[in-house]
Every structure is written in C-alpha cells, then in structure tokens.
Nucleic acid binder design. Structure first.
Lengths: 156, 156
DNA sequence: AGAATTTGGTTGACATATCAACTAAATACT
DNA sequence: AGTATTTAGTTGATATGTCAACCAAATTCT
C-alpha cells in the first residue's frame, strides 16, 4: 500500500502548514490511543489522561488539571464526575479554599493505570524508535516553545 | 502572571507525556486559531483547513482530503456540503470515476483565503520566532516520523 | 462474464468539545 | 468593613467529532 497522502504537496516554506501537520499527527495519535484504550479498558482518552496525571502528580484540583491539559473546565467537570461515580477518583472539598475540591486517584484507578500504562509506554516507544535522543530533545524543546507562544489570544 | 501550569511536574523520562504534550500544544493552537477565525471570518477551523488546502493544491476529492487531514469522512462530507451551499466550493461528479466528486475552490473561497491567510501566516511567524531554522527542521522531521509511526492500529 | 471485495461518499445515532451564563467562595480595592 | 473583581466549578445549549451501517460504483478474482 503506497502512501498517497499527498504530503509532498505541502512542501514549500518551512513553517507552511506547520500547525496543520501538528493537527494531523495529533489526530492520528489520538485515534490510535483511543483505539488501544477501547481494546484494553472501558475508559476514554480524557479519562485516561486525567488518571495518568493524578497518578503521576498526586492530588490536585480541577482547575489545575484544566490548565495542565489545556482543556475546557466544563468538559473536565463532567468527565471527573464520571470518574468519581465509577470510584476511580475521590473528591473532597478543600478545607482551606472551599470553592475547590481536591481530587485523588483511588486504588481502583491506580490499578487501572498500572494495567494500561505498560502498553501505552510500549506504543510510545514504538512511536519514537529510530529517532535519535538529540532530535527528540530538540523536538520537545520546540514543542514547548510553540506551546508557550500560543498563549496570546489577542488579535494580531 | 506567572505560569503555574505545572509543566515542571511532567519531567522525567524523555518521552513520558510526549503525546500528552503534543495534545496540549495542539489544543492551545486550535483554540487560538479558532479564535482568530471567529474574529476575522465566519468560517470554522475545518472549513479553513479545507479551503486552504483546496487553494494550495488545486482540485481534489473528499477522500483525498480525508486522508490528508486525517479526518473522519463523515464529518468532512457535512462540512463540504456547507462550503458548497455557501458557494465557497464547487463540486462536480468525476467523469472517470462517478463515485467521487471533484472539489474546486470557488472565487469567493479564494478571496476568503486571500483575506485570512496573511493573518494566519503572521500568527505562524510569531509562533516560531526565536526558534532556529535548524531546530525547526528537526522538529518537522520528527513530527513527520511520529506521524508515520502512528499509522498502525494493530494491538501491541 | 459473474461473484466478491474495495472504495467514495452519505447518513443517523451518539459521544465529546466549546462557549456562555451562572453560583458561590476568595481576593483585591478603597 | 463594604464593594468590586477574580477564581473554582457546574450547567445548558449548541457545534463538532466519531463510529457504524449503508448505497452505489469500481476493482479484483476466478
């Protein structure tokens, strides 16, 4: 099966279609991981990311997650409600600031992460195999810069 | 305003959270460009991408666009119907293969692209300013590799 | 040629994402 | 203290995205 994706058509100025390429890669990655999650679990992509983060960084709040994932707080609110209902996460009102609630991953959630993580990491490994360490570092650096630069919402 | 996004929490193994970071950057970029599109036009992000591609690569078909954008053909079908209804794109059945239809950007669509493109390019320029040419090249190369590697949907 | 498979596109049902309005608590301002 | 502003989170309305079923035309296989 030859790759007739027409990528060659998008040459030209270096940054032309850069965000487009990013979006495209993102779409493919998302489709792939969603696919795996469906096979290996019954949680969705956002659920996975939330659990993964809660497991990795410990207790936190919705608004932190929202900032971190750069994701709508409304959506997050609903997703987290689902996770709490499924007993994967617990939520308690913060004693210091009663507007916010502290989210903590539950043992069941932790177990889920333990089950899925190896497969996700293996996939991650496959994604970057053949790419040199140095190139990967540059990649992540540039990605971080672009991330930082896409902060402003002011009109040009 | 200090950046309390907690990015520092995500250090560790180089590729840990790589797709997560990609998703995050993607979300921010999308939010940003959608915002601009809302200010400067009344078309959505997908409409923009389709018009931009049709303008840049000439006539094509839905399935090509679907492959290129790595986007659901169903959604694309509806979006393109909208573009045709708004007379930004014309569609005619291919004489050779009557399953498919050739999509062509209309003059109105072309004009729209001419109006918006400079602002998009200026934004693009701001995104990458301060990043060296060499680093950008590596970035795009790695991105392409990851894109290619995220092809398989087979279980691990 | 005829059957089986693939491909291009449309549609419906459903899940997810986005935006805006809103409540309540915390902070800042005077 | 008292008002104004900001922040955390929820909710509803609406737009977008995803998946699967489906039709019709093209292609492959025999």
């Amino acid at each position: 099966m030859s790759d007739t994706n027409g990528k060659e058509l998008l040459a030209g100025h270096l940054t032309s279609f850069m965000t487009f390429r990013l979006a495209r890669a993102h779409n493919k990655l998302n489709a792939q991981i969603s696919h795996y999650l469906r096979i290996y679990s019954d949680i969705g992509l956002v659920d996975w990311r939330v659990l993964r983060l809660l497991e990795a960084m410990g207790d936190t709040t919705m608004s932190q997650l929202s900032r971190l994932l750069q994701m709508d707080k409304g959506q997050l609110s609903r997703k987290i409600r689902g996770l709490v209902e499924r007993k994967l996460v617990t939520s308690r009102v913060d004693q210091v600031d009663s507007r916010q609630q502290i989210l903590r991953i539950d043992e069941a959630g932790r177990q889920l992460v333990r089950d899925i993580l190896p497969k996700v990491q293996e996939r991650q490994r496959l994604l970057v195999e053949g790419i040199s360490q140095a190139d990967l570092e540059v990649f992540l650096e540039v990605l971080a810069k672009i991330d930082a630069a896409s902060e402003t919402r002011d009109p040009l």
